[in-house]
Design a protein around this nucleic acid. Structure first.
Lengths: 338, 338
DNA sequence: GATCCATGATAAAAGCTTTTAGCAGAAAAA
DNA sequence: TTTTTCTGCTAAAAGCTTTTATCATGGATC
């Protein structure tokens, strides 16, 4: 006979059914105050029986902590956001914290609207993520009464910020190629005005030294195709490996190489960046690439906002999380494939 | 001097600053009860000045409507979910409704946890979406005290459900090919145990009649590649058009055709399904395909849950939303490209 | 001058939970 | 026996808003 009525059960119902006062019921359920073990058990059993669940609104109203956070994103596409959001939500659900998802579509009016709604809902914190598209928040987030964590986006100085470690990721790729005996490594990447592209390129240049060449373009498959055509059309030594700034670029590169009858990985080894499975798994051969550990990024951001919302500390400034090398078949590795 | 203190302003602050009672302040702000026009203006001005925003928790506690809904998804990848969620959120934010995003990762325990959290938060409704992967909800949603709307997933009989109109979408593709003079149309699609694949295939068979052939496989690029090789290796007439069950399959098909030196669209026209831009835009030539209008699906689901939560009606049973043909260059259409 | 009505305001309750302060009774200490 | 200390429980307040019922005032009506 659990909760057949239409009305939700309140702690008042529990108290009445257990024959105690409301405060005793509350104390028994939360293990606060002083309660007799036997009473405590009885109250809990009764609560279970009638299907009592505390009203989060009332709880939040009193405690001034809503146990909810907001996630503000301008990524309409979802390739980076949703895995991250899943990570955030995954780590927070066990702490009883839920996540409001707010897609701003890069519209400042919408962003402002969402932000106000979040504040009205007394969220305990906000995670702002910009997916590299534009690095400046579309709304004023600095002077908020609640903590803000930035992912893939830079906040004001010393704000808690998470990025993948692009420098280490690029090094991972280059080192892998070098270990396999490749020496003439080319880098084809996205636009120069992307910070991530610049960092990866610099890391590559540092690791490869003389003769290294970074070609900037855009994040498309087409650009990868075009770049390869250019390089193979001009005179001089050809690369024996290509490190690409994204899996999409890598896909274009692989296609262009096949058009030129260049063998992969025999003649040229290819490494991508993103481990976007739907691309990396489908290239022929499957693509060795760098994974940015988006879910882990989400975990860390979630834990950080949780700490901050409790007044506990979180790593100030920019934290860069290590990337991971995923070996498939585009480099001819003797290692087992993914 | 707006809200410099650390404490949020309450309606009590407004009342005091305006020299009226709390109830008058509330009435003035909400336009309820009887208030003198002049008083009303003054209260509103004061509220604006001190930066008062009503506490959504207190409001929800009283009205029993939290003005928040939950979105339960098992789609970890986000390709279908996020555009939809953006649609939901977009249409609801203007009604002051926020969206909790809950990614269940296909884990029943997680789903249960999220569901309980949502109920505790007194959400006004739940949108369940399953992205075609498995059609049965991972938790018991039927006997809930709040309305549920299903998208891409089938609920109990007569529950409010939205799907793209796969039948009409497939017909759109076939008609387009026929109009361009193609007569030997082949269909390459995903697994037969996907309802969507079966519907699209049936629609195609109905439209093409004798000689039509639907090849079931899986949703991968690889399968598209393989199917084309099979068809072009066997004796007999070759197709002059291929309608693919997904853009990924279409991509494999296009690659395989190029490997066989078959000209697209001169020799064979290709149509995809999904309008997944990152694939459809990047094929060579760019892919003509069917768009499922995910955002619109989100809009409709959002409006439906809004109606239901207010006790108003919503379209019972399965509603199928029309798909849209996106013409690019893979069919040699004289129409302008997208 | 007494009664009625409309207006504009207000006090108080309700919504549900947690926390603080306090009370009654029993056991322990003086 | 009287005082102190625990123990187990409870009443009431607080958190913020909306709504209901009530009240005071001034003008209109008889």
């Amino acid at each position: 006979m659990k909760n057949t009525g239409d009305r939700r059960r309140t702690i008042y119902d529990v108290a009445k059914a257990a024959g105690v006062s409301i405060s005793t019921a509350s104390n028994a359920l939360n293990g606060t105050g002083r309660t007799n073990a036997e009473t405590r058990e009885r109250v809990r059993r009764v609560a279970e029986e009638i299907g009592f669940r505390p009203n989060a609104l009332a709880r939040g109203l009193l405690s001034k902590r809503s146990h909810a956070i907001g996630m503000l994103t301008n990524d309409t596409y979802g390739r980076l956001t949703l895995p991250m959001a899943a990570g955030v939500s995954e780590v927070l659900v066990d702490h009883g914290v839920s996540v409001f998802l707010c897609a701003t579509n890069n519209d400042p009016r919408l962003a402002q609207l969402h932000l106000e709604a979040l504040l009205d809902r007394q969220v305990d914190g906000i995670i702002f993520t910009a997916t590299r598209l534009d690095l400046t928040p579309p709304v004023q987030l600095s002077r908020l009464p609640i903590p803000v964590v930035y992912v893939f986006a830079e906040g004001p100085a010393d704000s808690v910020t998470f990025f993948p470690d692009d420098e280490q990721g690029a090094r991972l790729a280059v080192d892998h190629l070098k270990e396999l005996g490749r020496s003439r490594i080319l880098h084809i990447t996205g636009p120069r005005d992307y910070l991530a592209a610049r960092i990866r390129a610099q890391s590559y240049l540092d690791a490869c030294g003389d003769g290294a060449e970074a070609m900037f373009g855009d994040w498309s498959e087409e650009w990868g195709h075009e770049a390869v055509q250019t390089v193979f059309a001009r005179p001089g030594a050809k690369p024996d490996a290509i490190f690409c700034g994204s899996d999409e670029i890598a896909r274009g590169v692989i296609d262009a190489l096949r058009d030129l009858d260049v063998e992969i990985p025999t003649d040229v080894a290819v490494v991508g960046f993103d481990n976007w499975e739907v691309v990396a798994r489908q290239t022929r051969p499957p693509l060795t690439t760098i994974d940015m550990e988006l879910k882990e990024l989400g975990h860390r951001a979630g834990l950080a906002i949780l700490s901050l919302s409790k007044g506990e500390p979180a790593p100030a400034g920019i934290t860069r999380l290590p990337c991971r090398l995923v070996v498939r078949q585009s480099c001819g590795s003797p290692l087992q494939s993914d």
